[in-house]
């Protein structure tokens, strides 16, 4: 895997807050990570942990009442957090592309697929309609859509969910971006199609050297795909390291809980555990560690917000009592689900 010195994207202490009537929602609250060319970064966390908002912040697509209130987003060294609108427009879809969570909603229902693809090319390049059309056709074939020529003339409702997501992926690939933010692109699809798309996207990234941020709440997806992983909880990255390291040896109790809730071969026959409770409301987070209401290892220091430490080499963790290698997470009585 080619690793160059200038990262494609470097996010430093990103903070994106929503100023709602009910109060300030700190949806992304100090998130940092780095993605290099050809690398895949997995962004994992429960619903509401701030994954999508992180993606939108990178794209410059955070809408009112949200705002990037702190940190830097360095695209090839240039800080694009709160960059001017026109600068962001030129980057979007051209240098940085995004695939959205829900394939049923991402394509405009009243415009033909060719219109929606050609405009994505012509927004950035002065090319003829014919040439843009030809590139659109090639992109559809690239993502495995048969009879691309005919399909271009169709409307989105004539496609299945899986096919629509392929179209969205093809659109993201159209201008050969350096970075793709893929927001749970396969979650809404059934397992077979999910597998096919994962395989194809991975192949494309390897071929083209595109960096990718793959957002998901499914650890098993990340395991086979990503190089590095960021585990998010309540707007913060609580654990960050290479995929193999983190999955083999999770140190944050939340990561630990996530892993033991995934069925796997070597745990066959053992009960699956589930993290008790739910993500706390971001409007009134508990003082100290946001995970403390659900954490099996909670201790006296947890009333103080944990800073990033490195309990093992090349690992960032936010926890006062990280789990040591080989140690059980000291789950008192895990809730049995299966």
């Amino acid at each position: 895997m080619a690793k160059s010195d200038v990262p494609t994207l470097e996010v430093r202490n990103l903070q994106t807050h929503f100023f709602t009537r009910a109060g300030e929602v700190k949806a992304v609250n100090d998130v940092s990570f780095t993605v290099r060319p050809g690398e895949v970064l997995g962004l994992v966390g429960e619903s509401g942990s701030g994954k999508t908002v992180t993606g939108f912040s990178i794209m410059g697509l955070v809408d009112e009442p949200g705002r990037i209130v702190g940190g830097e987003i360095l695209y090839k060294g240039e800080n694009i957090a709160n960059a001017p609108d026109e600068r962001m427009r030129r980057l979007r879809g051209n240098n940085i592309a995004m695939i959205f969570q829900d394939p049923m909603m991402t394509l405009n229902p009243v415009l033909r697929v060719d219109t929606q693809m050609i405009e994505a090319i012509q927004a950035h390049e002065n090319v003829s309609r014919d040439e843009a059309w030809e590139r659109s056709r090639a992109a559809l074939e690239q993502v495995g859509i048969p009879a691309a020529e005919e399909r271009l003339k169709s409307y989105p409702h004539q496609f299945s969910g899986g096919m629509r997501q392929r179209v969205a992926i093809a659109i993201a690939l159209l201008n050969k971006p350096d970075l793709i933010v893929a927001d749970e692109p396969t979650t809404a699809l059934d397992v077979t199609i999910q597998g096919q798309i994962l395989y194809e996207v991975q192949k494309l990234c390897e071929e083209t050297g595109t960096a990718m941020i793959w957002i998901t709440h499914d650890l098993s997806v990340v395991a086979g795909l990503a190089d590095e992983i960021c585990v998010m909880y309540a707007g913060k990255v609580v654990e960050h390291g290479t995929v193999d390291d983190v999955l083999d040896n999770p140190t944050h109790p939340y990561t630990h809980g996530l892993i033991s809730s995934v069925p796997s071969r070597n745990k066959r026959g053992q009960p699956l555990s589930q993290i008790p409770g739910m993500t706390p409301s971001l409007l009134n987070l508990p003082k100290g560690c946001p995970f403390k209401t659900r954490c099996p290892r909670v201790g006296p220091d947890c009333d103080i917000e944990p800073e990033i430490t490195h309990p093992v080499p090349a690992r960032d963790v936010r926890c006062h009592y990280p789990v040591a290698a080989g140690e059980a997470a000291a789950v008192p009585t895990p809730e049995v689900t299966a």
């Binding site: 405009n108 405009e119 994505a120 927004a123």
Partner: peptide, 17 residues
């Protein structure tokens, strides 16, 4: 507020378009 409008913006289209 529909996703497809946000996606259109994510493609880098101008506000006018």
């Amino acid at each position: 507020h529909q996703d497809y409008v946000k996606f259109a913006r994510a493609k880098g289209l101008t506000d006018r378009r």
